[in-house]
Design a protein around this nucleic acid. Sequence first.
DNA 1: ACCACTCGTTGCCGTAACTCGAACAACAAT
DNA 2: ATTGTTGTTCGAGTTACGGCAACGAGTGGT
Lengths: 276, 276
Amino acid sequence: MDDSASGGSTDRSADTAGDGTEPRPVTTTATSFEVLEQLRTSDDPLGPAALGRRLDLARSTVHRHLATLERLGAVVRAGDDRRDGYRVGLRLLDFGLGAREAHRLYPLAAPKVDELAEETGEKVWCIVPEGSRSVHLYGAAGRRSVRTGVREGSRGYLHQHAAGKAILAHLPADRVREIVDTEGLPAQTPETVTDESELFEQLERIRERGYAFNREESVPGLHAVGAPVRDESGVAVGAISVSGPANRLKGERLHEALPDLLLGATNEVEINLSHG
Amino acid sequence: MDDSASGGSTDRSADTAGDGTEPRPVTTTATSFEVLEQLRTSDDPLGPAALGRRLDLARSTVHRHLATLERLGAVVRAGDDRRDGYRVGLRLLDFGLGAREAHRLYPLAAPKVDELAEETGEKVWCIVPEGSRSVHLYGAAGRRSVRTGVREGSRGYLHQHAAGKAILAHLPADRVREIVDTEGLPAQTPETVTDESELFEQLERIRERGYAFNREESVPGLHAVGAPVRDESGVAVGAISVSGPANRLKGERLHEALPDLLLGATNEVEINLSHG
DNA sequence: ACCACTCGTTGCCGTAACTCGAACAACAAT
DNA sequence: ATTGTTGTTCGAGTTACGGCAACGAGTGGT
């Protein structure tokens, strides 16, 4: 009842301070996703109280969101007791895997990734850009492959991987600008490329030779080679990378054998991509 | 259309006889999920107009939801032109695969499923109950395995599979009652068990011998064997099944060899489940 | 060439429904 | 028994959600 009971002309009260360029259309659905995000990143199930504390929301509000999400199958109670809290439900597995199979690259690249993992014995990834980030679409573990923290579905920065740099090198220049401007060039290891001109220089050389390297830029002790998958118009729709311990990925193997294998695979995928 | 495998009647009327008192907690988040559901079940990308028509919403409303979901990464524009519509984004892959790996059964069952697929050459599934339905948590295709319509993440009815019946047979009796009451016993093929007493009779025999059969009850021409995975207290947390063409899964192989293999695998998983 | 139709997008306004705080029942720890 | 949790329900207040109408752009018909 403060003022402006009708019409509400003068002041807009809070006006959602903070975001300068936010257009207007934002939603409460975002809150539900924040709940999901909290549940996803937590190892243990969480209840309304714990979630409310993390998100700064009232317990009753969280309760309502959870009830709705439960009805949708997006979350499930962890145990039989109602004190056990909730965790992310498998309904989202349906959505997620559906999205993956709907991606034009997945059915073509997955078998090739498997082949490469078999041939090289290392970890092989198919990575695609989404928004201004990278998504690990599909991965296959070779016999001697190392375990990193990355999972299928993981999101990361394009400038931190071999595959990501291969993608950046074959994107329209203004697109690269947008991505760098919105995401910046955060470092993951001391070797990560954080200098803008250094990055553009690398991208130029990647365009020349057709593939990219990653020398401990994402994980200490890990090297990788990445090659882009381009569509008819030449822009990258994704990339495939082979990664392994630095002492195994070096010299002739890193600079010639693996790139050859990779380019053979990506070339084949590109052909199927155009004539499929 | 008409398929609408899940969700179904979302209209306010609904309220099947019985409990007319819908609690209260329903949300607009549900609308966002309906948008996602439509995008998931559609082969082609959809825009605000098409979605609005299918969901009976104003274009502007759908637009708002899409804008929010896009900001969250849950949907993405299909093409560069803004006329191309949206599809489900890979953000949900992150949620979905995370939920799968968080499931206590997945890391234990997946390698065993791979083994069984290798040994039998058939299609092998790990299935878990969620809510009152079944979810295909993980599947592996053997060398000669057949392709059915099922995918990882697919949801179905517990009484229609071998694995599902194996689960039902090792659930508390009142739980089974709940499930049958809420879901009914819909038929998928002429062979599906639709009679309640027939089902309970089968469940009793499944408990006695320790595994379940499926003779063309879910897909015509397809047979399967399923064995439960029980936790310390004896209730089923999931099941593993082997399925293949009826003419290959019969006689001694169906009734002795495959059950032996299956029970060996599930037993091992159960041990790891208790002491891991 | 025009026109008629659809598309996506954007303000605006009324009101549905989302958020919050308080209160209640169970349970745990002191 | 007291004090602290927890999950859950109910009501009141106000946000922001949903529908309508209009704009700019693209497409197909004639």
